[in-house]
C-alpha cells in the first residue's frame, strides 16, 4: 500500500520553528510506522531524525505522537493507523531535532521519586520471601519502560512541567506497594507535594497512551489513597 507520512520537522541549526513535511512510501499493512520512518531516512532523506532501538516496544525509545495520540512508532502498524499518518514529537518536552525531544526533564522527575529499592535491614542469606499475592500488588507498574508516552499525554504536564507526571508516579507505585520495601513513607511525602499526585486530574490520557497497557490512572489513584490514609 502507499502511505503518506506527514512529519513535523525541526532542525535547530537551520529552522526557527517546526514545520510539516510530507513523504510518500510503499509499505506493507503489517509494517510498523517506525519501518516507514526508517525507510524514509534510508531512501529519501537521511536528515530525518528520531530515536529507535529495539523496534518491538520494549526499550521505549520511539515515543511520538502519531495521528494525534502518543504511541510507540514500533508498536503502531499501518493497518491500524491508516495510510495517511501524521507524526510529531511528544509534547511538553523541548524538541531537539525533528522527532527527538530532550528527555532530561522527564528523567529528573523519575529520579525525584526515589525509584529504587530501599531496605536497610541486613539481607537474608537467600532471597527475601514474598507471597504471590504481595508480588501481584505491584506487578503492573513493573512493566514501565520509561518511554514517556504517559507523561507527555498529560494536559497538566503540558501546562506545567513542575508536575512530577504519571511515569514517575508509576515508578514510585512499583516500590510503594512492594512488601519488601521500606521507603514508602519518603516517597509518599514527596508525592504529597503540590506538584505531586494532586495535579493528576483523572484525565486518562496516560492510561490510553501507555504502550505497556499499565492502568496508569488507577496506579495514581492508589497512591493518592495511600497518602490520604497516611495523613488522616
Amino acid at each position: 500500500m502507499q502511505v503518506t507520512l506527514k512529519i513535523q520537522r525541526f532542525n535547530p541549526e537551520k529552522d526557527s520553528a517546526p514545520y510539516w513535511k510530507e513523504y510518500t512510501i510503499e509499505a506493507e499493512p503489517t509494517d510498523r510506522v517506525l519501518d516507514g520512518l526508517l525507510k524514509i531516512k534510508l531512501e529519501q532523506d537521511g536528515t530525518l531524525t528520531m530515536r529507535s532501538s529495539c523496534a518491538h516496544g520494549i526499550c521505549g525509545s520511539d515515543a511520538m505522537r502519531i495521528n494525534g495520540v502518543n504511541r510507540l512508532a514500533c508498536k503502531s502498524l499501518f493497518q491500524e493507523v491508516g495510510n495517511n499518518v501524521t507524526v510529531e514529537p511528544i509534547a511538553g518536552l523541548p524538541v531537539i531535532k525533528d522527532l527527538v525531544v530532550d528527555m532530561e526533564p522527564f528523567m529528573e522527575h523519575y529520579r525525584s521519586v526515589l525509584p529504587f529499592f530501599i531496605n536497610d535491614d541486613p539481607p537474608p542469606e537467600k532471597e527475601r520471601l514474598q507471597s504471590e499475592e504481595d508480588r501481584l500488588k505491584f506487578e503492573e507498574t513493573t512493566k514501565c519502560i520509561l518511554c514517556g508516552c504517559c507523561t507527555t499525554s498529560c494536559p497538566t504536564f503540558w501546562a506545567t512541567d513542575a508536575y512530577v507526571g504519571p511515569a514517575a508516579i508509576v515508578q514510585a507505585h512499583r516500590f510503594i506497594f512492594d512488601s519488601r520495601d521500606q521507603g514508602s513513607a519518603q516517597r509518599l511525602e514527596i508525592l504529597a507535594d503540590p506538584d505531586g499526585v494532586w495535579r493528576c486530574r483523572t484525565i486518562f490520557n496516560c492510561t490510553n497512551a501507555c504502550p505497556r497497557e499499565i492502568k496508569v490512572t488507577e496506579a495514581i489513584a492508589e497512591v493518592k489513597k495511600e497518602i490520604l490514609f497516611s495523613k488522616l
Binding site: S112, I118, N119, D120, Q186, E189, I190, A192, D193, G196
Partner: peptide, 13 residues
C-alpha cells in the same frame, strides 16, 4: 531507614 529524599521536606503537603 536511610533518608534518600534530596529535597527538604515538601511544604504544604
Amino acid at each position: 531507614t536511610t533518608r534518600y529524599a534530596r529535597t527538604p521536606k515538601p511544604s504544604g503537603s
